[in-house]
Simulated assay, not measured.
Amino acid sequence: MKVAEKFYEFMSARTWQLTEDWYDSLDKSDSSGVYASTDPHVIQTLKRQNHEFHERFCVLFKDVGQDALSNFERWIEEIAKDNEHLSTPTHYILREFFRTQDQYLGILQEFVRQHGDEFPSGRIDDFRELIIKTFSIVISKFAEENYEYSQRRLKAQQEMIRELSSPVILLNKKTGVLPLIGDIDTGRARYILEHTLAECVDRNVEHLFIDLSGVIMVDTMVAQQLFQIIDSLNLIGVKSTISGIRPEIAQTAIQLGISFENISVTSTLERALNEQI
């Protein structure tokens, strides 16, 4: 029997034991992430993913010369986009890759102790090089895929936060209120403008109350964009009323030369609603 085939059989007989040994030796004191989970379903999935890695790795010795990246491509994609792994610090995951690599190097040493006299030492060195090279390829590709999926999730979360932070709330069929809270930078101001116009059109809003009492400070560019909302709403036939303008924002608006002559302004949202509804 060829040495590669014998080593394949040697490893494939130990795949589940590798998984159990790996999980038992995990540092489960990590503050967060998949490795600290006590959920039975998560643990079962984690073990399955680990075992599938072993099965794919063993095949490299059964079919020597095949492309390692192609062999692991689907596995890498599953792990990289898995929510549990996306919630796990990357350095924890890399740590487990290297611990698994050590497991394989340990198996190779055990194989050499039992069968080293049967095969040339140069062939064993080739196996050691294949193990290290394969892990290098898999880790690099995982890091790339994991980063891309992390960026996509971050972007989706940012979009959700933006939507939640600039909601047009309907008071009745034709009237809505836009309560703005927190710091507003240029990017958020641009989003508020676009989102507000779209929401008013989609919901057939005729009168929108914009409350700025929760906005502490804005720069001149942001203030200009906020007051552009009024002009833009007017162009699409939506009447607007501003409430809760802080003195700092009012001063910035005056410095920009913004006229309040054609803008309905009240001190508080409660007063605006009592006067208009």
Rank of each mutant, 00 (worst) to 15 (best):
N234H: 12
S150L: 04
R162P: 00
T134I: 11
L208Y: 09
K173I: 00
S213P: 06
S264N: 12
R153C: 00
G106V: 00
L26S: 05
I258K: 08
S232T: 14
G182R: 07
S264F: 01
R152V: 12
T100G: 13
M160Y: 03
P179R: 08
D30T: 13
L94D: 01
D102N: 13
W16N: 13
G182Y: 06
T241L: 03
P167T: 01
S166F: 01
W75L: 14
H115W: 02
I249M: 04
A253E: 07
K133N: 11
A253H: 10
R74D: 15
F111T: 08
W75M: 10
S259P: 13
P167C: 01
T90E: 10
L256K: 12
V3W: 07
E275P: 04
L94T: 11
Y104Q: 02
D24A: 15
T45M: 14
L226M: 11
D202R: 14
A156Y: 04
F97M: 12
I216H: 10
T134V: 09
S12C: 12
S213I: 08
Q151F: 05
D24N: 15
R153P: 00
P247A: 11
E145R: 15
V59K: 11
L208I: 09
V201P: 00
L46H: 10
T266K: 11
S240I: 09
N146I: 01
A80F: 05
T196I: 07
T90S: 11
W22K: 04
R95A: 01
Q17K: 14
Y191P: 06
